[in-house]
Design a protein around this nucleic acid. Sequence first.
RNA 1: GUGGGUAUAGUUCAGUUGGUUAGAACGCCAGAUUGUGGUUCUGGAGGUCGUGGGUUCGAGCCCCACUAUCCACCCCA
Length: 425
Amino acid sequence: MSDGAPAKQTFQAVKGTKDVLPDIAPYYQYVEEKARELFALYGYQEIRTPILEATELFARSVGQASDIVVSKQMYTFTDPGNRSNTMRPEGTAGVVRALVESGAFKETNQQKVFYMGPMFRYERPQKGRLRQFTQIGMECFGIPHPAADAETIILSTELLKAVGFRDISVKLNNIGDQECRRTYNEALREAIAGSSKWCPQCRERAAINPMRVFDCKVLECKEMTASLPSVIDFLNPTSQRHHRTVCEILDAAGVPIELDTELVRGLDYYSQTVFEVVHNGLGAQNAMLGGGRYDYLVEELGGPPTPGVGMSIGLERLIMAMQASEIIPPPAPPPEYYLLALDDDSIITVSRLAVLARRHGNRVAFDCQPRTARAGLKAADRSGATAAIIIGTSELERNVAQWKNLENGEQMELTLEEIERNLSE
RNA sequence: GUGGGUAUAGUUCAGUUGGUUAGAACGCCAGAUUGUGGUUCUGGAGGUCGUGGGUUCGAGCCCCACUAUCCACCCCA
């Protein structure tokens, strides 16, 4: 500012955000590509909704139960027009809003869509938890039949298999409809009130969201949850049938499932099927994929009564799991040719050759500046190119170029015409 | 919101009880080869030791605060 050494300001990524540098980007591309392939096979269409939504949309979708807590974990701000906006913390609400708003549900209530993109939650970062993270998700609307639940789970596991995971198992549960859950929650409250050994937090959970006691990490509580009533015993006949059919279809499809009556989902709009896939390389936040049925959400968000089932994948967690499982995405293909200009006079000719080769679909590396033969070949070698084409003044004068095979080291002198012919293949 | 760990070169990390000029590996650049890669050898660049204060004759090391980061709790759409 004043005198002395100028202080150079440096910047770093905002807390809880992460750069996807070129060494990691292939993981994202690979998973996204596999996901797109599968969504196409299953007839799911892409939908892209804004990152910004009216705050009220999310406030409504998550309901009152976790209202206070959740609102603190959202990126909410007042825009210059004095409207309260929120950066989406999840994908489903925006998708529902878009389909309702566009009138899609008036033509047919059956919609199969997928999305992928960044989500934002204002939370304390830890392993597997960022403030900006990426989700790939899918939603199937309008089909109450358990076959839709099963298809969602099947696609999920097929995707994980396509990415390269082996021995994956889906944790599956059914939490009934709203009526079942009301009676079940009451039973839980009673059971928890019956013992004084629960931790203070579990006592609080009993009041707000009793099923969450199954997530408690206190050892004593964990032991006690085993003797709590099971949700399965509170399912009405419809829910029982639904659950059984989902299991039967998955069984027939050869999808390994692991029934887990302690698997819960907090929010009111969930119903029936809930599922999750965890991976043990992920730390405390070990779910890499989760989903379930939500037959009450569309109506809650102002649409016609429409059942729905969906899932979403936490891409960063999935990638961590890939790394823990040593699944490596295919690397970007190396250049076929490495074009090397030894001096400034050769740049125009080499640039022209690069354009020619690329127009014919060849991957070409070119430094866009003169390099010494030593530095250029070193770089060419590292690039993985199979051949280097070298031009300096002595080649320029004679209208030739050196063609060097980088695998066996053989080098020959070709006329520019011959080079052009080769690069046009 | 709560608790614990960490912060030294581009990266991963050493750094003795507090002692002179802060090191290694990898990477980068260059030379050996004045226009030819991989292996090898030699050399070089690159650090406000996170920031600010304190203790001390002396601090990368000890103390305090702040910041960042990691992990866990809480919560988990």
